[in-house]
Amino acid sequence: MRLREEGALLSEGAKREIEALRARYPVAQSAVLPALLRVQEELGWVPPEAMAEVGRLLDLPVEVVAEVASFYSLIFTEPVGRHVVQLCTNVSCLLSGAEAVRERVERELGVRAGQTTPDRRVTLLAVECLAACDQAPCMLVNERRYGPLTPEAAARLVKELD
């Protein structure tokens, strides 16, 4: 991993936003999750140096930040692809053909759920209920939700990602 100079990791805008988040709460630690998500918006994931940076901005030991970061599945503590695809595999989607969608998307990308394509284009995740069972089987492509999906439609969607 390439280490960057301290402070050069995050943009000034992100740092200001993280500091502003503190004002929403009587206790600075409450801002940890929103701050980590802000980091992730900028870097795609949360490298250890960024945890330290968040700790500095919120006056918290890095251990506290790391402890929180490692608990939540949508804080990425490993690098992810340029696009993150979250495929629902819970019951309502399962009953509506999510397994076929998953197999087809895995074939299209050449990776299994939980993996990133070698060109770092797409990270595919099999996730729990997305609360969109009226669109089952469904998936999130970055921030956008799609469904109901056929295996072919899902494969097309991930193929078109640049």
Binding site: A28, S30, L33, F71, Y72, L74
Partner: peptide, 22 residues
């Protein structure tokens, strides 16, 4: 306030822990 991928955060006391940044 955003969660970050945790079903148990929907349990009321776990939600409060999460909101406190834990």
């Amino acid at each position: 306030h955003p969660g970050a991928g945790s079903y148990i955060a929907g349990e009321e006391t776990a939600l409060l822990e999460s909101l406190e940044g834990k």
